[in-house]
Write a protein that binds this DNA or RNA. Structure first.
Lengths: 91, 91
DNA sequence: CGATAATGACAATGATCGTTGACATTTTTC
DNA sequence: GAAAAATGTCAACGATCATTGTCATTATCG
């Protein structure tokens, strides 16, 4: 997903954390940050620091990437793994 | 490109800035940050803050995105625009 | 319902940020 | 090679960070 502003990242992280069934405290502990920071991050903290963000995403099984702004609109990610899986599953 | 650590982002930004023929001062002015900060960022500043990073990338025509860590390995970006362009260009 | 967990908010603190201004060191241009 | 531009580095400063501890408010579970 595209991250245009801090709020995008916050929402994304909160959703993913819930997907994994983690509490804010769980995530904070695993990541090595305070729970207060996680709360702020999910609220869309613009001043959040890069390394803490990277560590948080890592704990959530997420990764950060940078692409051309135009590309991010017209170059969708194609999940080759899923395509291969679903086209070869015929027993 | 994938950003695993602050240094990745720094290298990426420096390369892109040079591609565009901008000086550190140029980029700093456009982005509204100090040149010292740009220098540090390109060197791989882990404590760089999200909003400043987003503003910098924006000025470079770059965008930030978050994907599944696994996905980022197996879901390449497909440039549909380029595909359409090159398959319809026959006069 | 009652108890417990989870989340949101606040203040106080030490640590660190990003800025300005200056100077040294490349790198580029003529 | 000389001049100019670009880059790297430093110190001092006010501003802000991330942390801890605490308490109020929701959710969740038995």
């Amino acid at each position: 997903m595209n991250v245009r502003a801090a709020k995008d990242l916050g929402a994304l992280i909160r959703d993913r954390r819930n997907e994994l069934g983690l509490t804010q405290q769980n995530l904070a502990d695993k990541t090595g940050v305070s729970r207060v920071w996680v709360v702020a991050l999910e609220k869309g903290k613009p001043s959040a620091q890069l390394d803490l963000i990277l560590r948080t995403l890592h704990q959530l099984g997420l990764a950060l990437s940078v692409d051309s702004a135009k590309a991010s609109l017209f170059t969708p990610r194609i999940d080759l793994g899923e395509i291969i899986r679903s086209t070869t599953k015929q027993a």
